[in-house]
Design a protein around this nucleic acid. Structure first.
Length: 410
DNA sequence: AATCCACTGGAAAATACGGGCC
DNA sequence: GGCCCGTATTTTCCAGTGGATT
């Protein structure tokens, strides 16, 4: 192993890193701390809702505050627990309750199975654990929007009502959302209980992002390995994207990694441009590689249909029939058109394809569908994937539905 | 103005699966 | 073994719908 010439501490640029100081978040932190302060005197802090776009530091600040408060509580011998739950990942009532329970007690896993119990029993167990433990719990519900609007959105109702059921302990919630309108979908009772206090994180501007970058760069890099222009450049790129500091950090990290791979002494602006390209491609690559097989088949259907119509506008029906042929050919269980229509919409949302609803009069109402990424990239990505490369090879061999577009696939 | 296509997209119901309870 | 829960994924059913055509 060669000695690290560029990086001193990679971690400092990762999105999960929590710095000890947050530039331009003094007011937010102060406000936050004031709301949570009662916890140190044994009182229940108000529930808080935090709004702000991605990359404005909501999650990091919330985690930071929790660490601080635990430390403080430790000094003063107060019982405070904190839990962090990402509701995008755990978006079921069962999962949320289980995650909170785990922070109370390490034996939770051995007592409560991760499936099988009826939900009110889990709820009872959690109450029990909480009261046994005593103290105050602060639960962070990140991306809380994922919990509402679904069938099980009464989970928030139960959670926020938890306090009145507890005798020996208290619990308060910090909800984090990037959609400031999400409370409109909320049950009014939950709305008032959850939003006792609220904070909004404004997006950073270019100058602020640059300061953040330089703070992190000092931790992450050795001295004089980064061209100062690089930070300015990364910051301005990210500021264009509604002040997303996370984007800026990613850009900086990848630029540095590229420079490192090139065995270059110093990170220059050249690498930032490279990094930007790579990030775009990598994003698509990671989406494609994690796509379930039915989604891949649908995507392949769209690709094979490209060029069938001169304007490149396929309809749902056309995609579905190609999809069916693919399924038959590879003895893959086929899904209903309703389902495939839904998959098309999802691929659209992920940015893999473009789908626009149009009305063709007597020809009915459907979607115009086309690929959102260019042919070269498609070829590359298909070749990397076992299933998708099979499709391009097999179909060419069999001589069925071959067009110039498909020939280009191999 | 009426018709009517080819879907869209919401909602309910079916199916499957992990796991407890008796 | 039979039945129940919670969760996830699909299927079934069906009431719309925008606008070219009649």
């Amino acid at each position: 192993m060669k000695k690290e010439r560029i990086f001193k501490n990679r971690e400092a640029l990762s999105t999960t890193f929590i710095p000890s100081y947050f530039p331009h978040r003094d007011n937010e932190i102060k406000g936050f701390a004031n709301i949570l302060k009662p916890a140190l005197y044994g009182a229940r802090p108000s529930n808080i809702l935090i709004y702000g776009q991605t990359g404005t530091g909501k999650t990091a600040v919330a985690k930071f505050i929790c660490e601080q408060i635990i430390e403080k509580a430790g000094n003063e011998n107060k019982q405070i627990h904190t839990a962090y739950i990402n509701c995008k990942q755990t978006n079921t009532p069962y999962g949320v309750l289980t995650n909170i329970g785990k922070t109370y007690s390490s034996e939770w896993d051995t007592i409560v199975p991760n499936a099988g119990w009826r939900i009110d029993k889990v709820y009872e167990a959690l109450k029990q654990k909480a009261d046994d433990n005593g103290g105050i719990a602060i639960v962070i519900l990140d991306e809380i929007d994922a919990l509402v609007n679904k069938k099980g959105d009464d989970i928030l109702y139960h959670l926020t009502g938890l306090n009145s059921d507890l005798s020996n302990s208290k619990i308060s919630f910090i909800g984090i959302s990037n959609d400031s309108k999400f409370t409109t979908w909320l049950d009014p009772r939950v709305k008032s209980r959850l939003g006792e206090e609220s904070l909004t994180f404004a997006p950073y501007n270019a100058i602020q992002i640059e300061e953040i970058l330089s703070q992190r760069a000092q931790i992450a890099f050795h001295d004089n390995v980064v061209d100062p222009m690089v930070l300015t450049y990364c910051a301005s790129k990210a500021a264009q994207q509604h002040g997303d500091a996370r984007k800026a950090l990613d850009l900086l990290r990848i630029s540095a990694e590229l420079a490192e791979r090139d065995d270059c002494e110093i990170v220059t602006v050249k690498y930032v441009n490279k990094a930007q390209n790579i990030m775009e491609i990598d994003q698509v690559r990671s989406i494609v590689s994690t796509l379930p097989i039915q989604y891949k088949a649908t995507l392949a259907g769209v690709v094979l249909n490209q060029g069938k119509r001169k304007d490149g506008h396929q309809t749902t029906g056309e995609v579905y029939s190609t999809y069916m042929q693919i399924c038959k050919h590879f003895s893959l269980d086929s899904l209903s058109q309703r389902r495939v229509g839904h998959i098309i919409s999802e691929l659209d949302m992920q940015g893999m394809i473009n789908a626009k609803i149009v009305s063709l009069g007597r020809q009915g109402r459907t979607k115009f569908i086309s690929m959102a990424i260019d042919q070269n990239q498609i070829d590359e990505l298909f070749a990397e994937d076992a299933f998708l490369s099979d499709i391009s090879i097999e179909l060419t061999k069999s001589g069925n539905y071959i067009s110039s577009t498909q020939l280009r696939l191999i």
